[in-house]
Design a protein around this nucleic acid. Structure first.
Lengths: 244, 244
DNA sequence: TCAAAAGTGTTAAGGTTACACCCATGA
DNA sequence: TCATGGGTGTAACCTTAACACTTTTGA
């Protein structure tokens, strides 16, 4: 039987942690106009066989962001991406392995949110049935608290898109204004803005430059290819800028 | 001498963590029109004697936010506050105790940002020279990476104030529109907006209700006391709302 | 020559800014 | 009666939203 003294000591005892990084990786399939999120089928316990966000535990000497890039690189080959820290979920009993019968340490998750270019993202997997792009509307029940993390990431994506130039990290070097508009529509939903108003707002900002090159898409007038001019954008950095 | 095999094993070894919570606690002295941040003088190694953000290590069974509230309650008595998670700093070598000669585990910090009502915040300390409100412009070099955390929190505070009703968590139950304006001025700097425009914008939104009660401040016309009407605000929740 | 896709222009409604001005009180 | 702080009004300007219209192409 424990004395009161012992109970007090137990109460103020520090928790030991393993730290994991979970990535919410988004991509936009511009052909089918679908917003996708990358999911992994777990092959180990806990939650073996269930879909989850791609994650990993942080290794000795590894920075958190480094860990996020590592897991990303293990799952997909990609040239262009945007990545930022999302939120930290660290309450007790997130992970069954916390049980004293198991490892007896708490599992904290630092989540990151990424947007990658769909066209040049190659999935890496021994068997491709264990990794897939899921349309955001069709995501099933995920392992751990990953549905909550995903929801959080989705909200952040929509906000970021409205007042940051992250779209250009994920579009090809040159793109038509319609490509850009479609990307916004896919993520924010139709009728977030009229095309012609979107167009004039973006052009007025002055950091999209017309390359002069035209590209034809079946019938209809050919579209100009534009380029994002990072230098012309510089003055807007850290300023509240609205794209929609 | 290590074999290549051993090196590889070491490389993929998981890190063990202690998790700390560090709070960036802001307050506004409306008398002197100063934005203040709560700092603690450390009395233990490492960085003994240096100023730091109030922080603590997470205990067994304790949620992160719970930990943030605990350290806050240990340092100040306060009735009204706003608190949210800020960012997680978890790179290697943030803390000298990570050294193998010391505890040999990594110290990760989940930071929280809080805004408290200055008037009813009583500092708790055995000796008051070890805890103090610092004007934001005069903050010295802090322990660990706390200056970086503070800077991050300061940016978040300014953003939050512009499009969230956090000011009302920190104002008295009833307040004059000038009190509100002064709060905004102190945090965002003068000339963020004309008083009369600020006034009409806020009143048009319709969630500030005039109590009819007047209060006099020396010479001059008495001001109406207003109350924040949380119910009338409800429809604006989760909508992008701009106060400035 | 017609439909499709790209791109331009117009207009009404509403918001923002920078003020000038009126009101109520204490000294 | 005047200085002080509170409160109202307004005209010029800018932004937004909706939609009509022109241009350039392939079939």
């Amino acid at each position: 039987m424990k004395t009161d003294e012992q109970k007090l000591v137990n109460k103020t005892e520090l928790e030991n942690f393993k730290v994991g990084v979970d990535n919410v990786i988004f991509s936009v399939d511009t052909q089918l106009n679908r917003l996708l999120v990358l999911l992994i089928k777990r092959k180990d316990e806990p939650f073996s066989g269930q879909w989850s966000l791609p994650g990993t535990l942080v290794r000795k000497g590894e920075a958190l962001e480094q860990s996020a890039y590592r897991i990303l690189a293990e799952k997909i080959q990609v040239k262009n991406l945007y990545l930022e820290q999302l939120y930290t979920f660290g309450g007790p009993w997130r992970d069954p392995r916390e049980s004293p019968d198991s490892y007896g340490v708490r599992y904290l998750s630092v989540s990151y949110f990424a947007l990658v270019r769909f066209e040049d993202a190659n999935l890496i997997a021994k068997n491709l049935s264990s990794i897939t792009w899921y349309p955001i509307q069709k995501v099933p029940k995920l392992a751990f608290d990953h549905n909550k993390i995903l929801e959080y990431g989705y909200r952040r994506l929509r906000n970021k898109l409205e007042y940051s130039p992250i779209a250009f990290d994920v579009l090809p070097e040159v793109f038509t204004l319609n490509d850009l508009y479609q990307l916004y529509c896919t993520i924010l939903g139709e009728n977030f803005s009229d095309y012609s108003n979107f167009r004039s707002r973006l052009l007025k900002l002055g950091f999209l430059c017309d390359t002069g090159v035209k590209v034809s898409k079946g019938a209809g007038r050919p579209a100009s290819l534009y380029r994002f001019d990072a230098e012309a954008f510089a003055p807007f950095k850290d300023k509240p800028l609205v794209f929609i």
